[in-house]
Every structure is written in C-alpha cells, then in structure tokens.
Design a protein around this nucleic acid. Structure first.
Lengths: 155, 155
DNA sequence: CCAGAATAGTTGCATATACAAGTATCCGAT
DNA sequence: ATCGGATACTTGTATATGCAACTATTCTGG
C-alpha cells in the first residue's frame, strides 16, 4: 500500500475531516449574517448558552458540558464576551470555585439584535439543505452523533 | 420575547452550534488516537489531501477547495507540516503563482504510521454511531450538507 | 505590446480550540 | 480537625480558523 492508497483510504471515509469541513462551511454562513453586528457565530452560541440558564446565571462548568467544549477554551471565550460588555462573570457564594456567568443588559440587547440575523442564516442554510424537515433531520443527526461519540469516549 | 426565550429559540435549532459541537467531539476522538505520533487529526487530513494527488503534487488552491478551507489558513497549516519535514512546497513552473505541495519520504512514512491509528479512531467512532451503515450515512450527510451550503452561499 | 483586471498566495490581526500544569476551594476519611 | 484527593477554573503554549490587505504573476481587451 503506497502513500497514495493510504491517503485515499483515509479521505474516502474520514468522519473527522467531514465533520470539521461541514462545520467550517456552516459557520461561514452564520458568521456572514452576523458580521454587521461584529459578532461571531461562536459568540452568539455562547451568549445563548448563558441566557438559556435564566436569571440564576449559568455556571461555567455547565456551559462547558452543554457546548462540549474544553474548560480552558470556554474560559478564554467568555473573557472576550465579558470584555465586550455582554456578560459578567461572578462567583457562586455557595462554592467559591464556581464561576456564574450572566448576560448584561447590553448582552441581552445584542442577543435580541442578533436574533433576526441568526434566523436569516438558519433559514438560508435550512433551505439549502432541502427544507425544514431536512434541517431538523440534520440537527438530530448532529445531536445523536455528539451523544454517541461522547458516550463512547467518555468526553 | 425576553432574552431567555431568544436564547432558547436559537439553541433549540441552531445548526452552526451543532455542527461545531459534533466536530469538536469527533476531533477529540481522532486526536487522542493520533497523539502518540504527535500528529493532529487536522494535520493527517492535510497530509492525506496532499498525498491523494499522487506524484504530480497538489496545488494549494485545489487543496483549499477540497478541504473547503480558507487559503490563508491552509498556507499556515502547510507551513507547519513543512517545518515538521513532512511536506515540501514548490512552485509550478507553468504558473509561478501556484504552489505545488508534495509529501516528503518522511511524510509518507508518517502517513503509513498514522493509518492504523486513524483506523482505530474511525472504527470506534463508527461503532459508537451504531455500525458501518450508520457511519457511512453520517459521512454522506456531512458531504451532502457541505455541498448544499457551499452551493447556496457561493463558498 | 500594455494597462488594468483577475488569480494565487502570504502577512497582519483576531478569535477558537485543546492539553498540561498550576491555583484555589471543597469534601471525605480518619 | 486535618490532610489528601477531587473539583472548578486559569494560565502557558501551540495549532486551527478566517477576513482584509498586500504582493506577485498571469490573463485579456484594445
């Protein structure tokens, strides 16, 4: 088996390559829609994750679990959101190790402003996939794959 | 609609969030298997893309198209592979703008050494997804989605 | 032929990502 | 009560990613 054949064996089936590639392409679509706001798709995801916790605020660890993201990465990404004025990072008085993240008023405003842009990107991507049912199906497949791989690898 | 509701509206359906998350999780599985070689999954993807061109070498632009990756990103990622001694970046004598990338002997050796590690990760991921047919299906869905979004957004 | 447009890469800058190692805090067994 | 391990996050370091602006080269219309 020469290098050419090895390369084709890998490229033909590699899920990692494809998962990353589709993430790049999809991300570009959302980033483009959000660009006028100076917000990246990743940051909107992060802010949604924070706001989804409601008034109690979101503990960092829980956010890391939901996003399946490394705590170190999250720590840094959060700092950017904080520096932009969209979130504040406090402490849990019950457990001083835990950081509780909340959106600021400015952050909530930005979230509202981002909604129609996000909807636009989402709509266009879903349409390109063939419509709502195809979009929902892909959504579910992403979720299923995430869960399956997480379970198998103890992530 | 308050921030909490906006956040849930976005999180409930966002394909960008899910595409990135599944890419993170899957990438970890492959990175872990490749770690003993000091190679990352992204780098193996890159090297496979180079070797897949055969003896003629791969023009950078074509590699960027295949990987759906920004030319600037590719330029830098390639330099790391080159610095590691796994590839050389030459010029196309027919068009001096074009860079032609080839694996070195060392690069081909590394590709061979990586194959069983990649197979192991691929096998475990596919198994976690429910077997070969589920793996192939997900592969196809990643490809279809990549093509669809690329076509819709002129990437 | 030649000037301007198009193409291929590179560089500057910024964010996203992760592992390893470090710090602070908490919890549990003795 | 305390000491040792577990937990939650941060910091150091390195790669991955992309946009904007730049350089070098090629192509194209006149």
């Amino acid at each position: 088996m020469n290098a050419f054949e090895v390369a084709h064996a890998i490229r033909a089936d590699c899920l990692c390559f494809r998962a990353r590639r589709v993430a790049r392409v999809i991300t570009r679509a959302y980033d483009e829609a959000l660009r006028p706001l100076g917000l990246q798709a990743t940051q909107l995801t992060l802010m949604s994750g924070i706001a989804a916790a409601g008034d109690g605020g979101q503990p960092m660890g829980r956010l890391a679990d939901i996003l399946a993201i490394d705590a170190a990465t999250l720590s840094r990404n959060l700092k950017l959101i904080e520096k932009a004025g969209f979130a504040e990072i406090g402490r849990d008085p019950r457990d001083k190790r835990v950081r509780i993240v909340r959106l600021t008023g400015e952050g909530e405003l930005m979230l509202h402003q981002a909604l129609p842009r996000w909807q636009q990107a989402q709509r266009e991507v879903v349409r390109s996939l063939g419509g709502d049912s195809a979009g929902a199906a892909l959504c579910g497949q992403f979720d299923d794959a995430t869960r399956a791989v997480q379970a198998a690898f103890d992530f």
